[in-house]
Design a protein around this nucleic acid. Structure first.
Lengths: 142, 142
DNA sequence: TTCCAATATATCACGCCGTGATATAAATTC
DNA sequence: GAATTTATATCACGGCGTGATATATTGGAA
């Protein structure tokens, strides 16, 4: 009778990883639905969250949003442009360094974001301790 | 002197959520880069992981992949079609119920997936206990 | 057997959005 | 004050998700 999990036991590893990604997808799906139900796209939600919460100042530059969202400049620029059209955020030139643009929430953007934040806190509170990680990430990953 | 966090303290909540999504994006970026470095698209990686690990049988139907990936039928069909063209998976009709299609890995698909699984286990092992969740998800969310 | 509903997969037009290449403008360096 | 760096913007292209719709197979009802 061999050990419980011999040297290369790929099956259970793949199963753990697949379940982990499945849980991730379920959460992201929840988030997408919540955003659309609030009348914004999932990306606009992420953008607003980055604008309001990433720096701790209540506003963010395009460059900071690039880091926050892990996207490229042009993707962020296009996203901000669309969010401005949707009335969720506005752009303002930084008076000190006129190259940079400050992105901040509009009143409507703030309302939408706060409601979404509330729903997300509820959903995240449902996860058990260490919920999102696969067992491989918590136990003897060796 | 008031409490540490009065009734509606949106700033720190938004900060927690933004940091949580930032960590998520960092992990997903790592995963995307790993997939591309292995010569496949991020979605092809997710597909292969679902095929090999979601059901525990080593193969999956389109419908099961729809649940696993949380996408719609047509998106999965198109994804599988592209993955077949890339030589990562193959389709086989189920002899019992000829409506369903079994998707399984090719030898090359298995090699690529196992390498990616290894890298992901390494990366996930770096997370502290409960790493991906915001403090709101672990502590008194009340 | 034949008809009908349910199930599983496939196809197509459309549009969002990420990407690479490239541009403009302001600040910094020499 | 010309060159370099930094910050943002524009555009063509392509991947891929979506809604509407089609096809095939199965199971059940008449």
């Amino acid at each position: 009778m061999p050990h419980t999990a011999p040297a290369g036991a790929p099956a259970s590893v793949l199963r753990d990883l697949a379940q982990f990604r499945y849980r991730l997808r379920l959460f992201l799906r929840f988030s997408e639905r919540a955003a659309r139900a609030a009348g914004v796209t999932p990306l606009q939600h992420q953008l607003m969250l980055g604008v309001a919460g990433f720096t701790g100042r209540g506003w963010a530059t395009i460059g900071e949003l690039t880091e926050c969202l892990q996207e490229r400049h042009n993707a962020v620029v296009a996203l901000v442009t669309r969010a401005v059209s949707a009335g969720l955020v506005r752009k303002r030139r930084d008076p000190a360094d006129r190259r940079v643009v400050r992105v901040e929430l509009t009143a409507r953007g703030r309302r939408v974001l706060l409601r979404l934040a509330h729903r997300h806190r509820e959903e995240l509170a449902r996860f058990p301790r260490g919920g999102l990680l696969p067992s491989a990430g918590r136990r003897g990953a060796r």
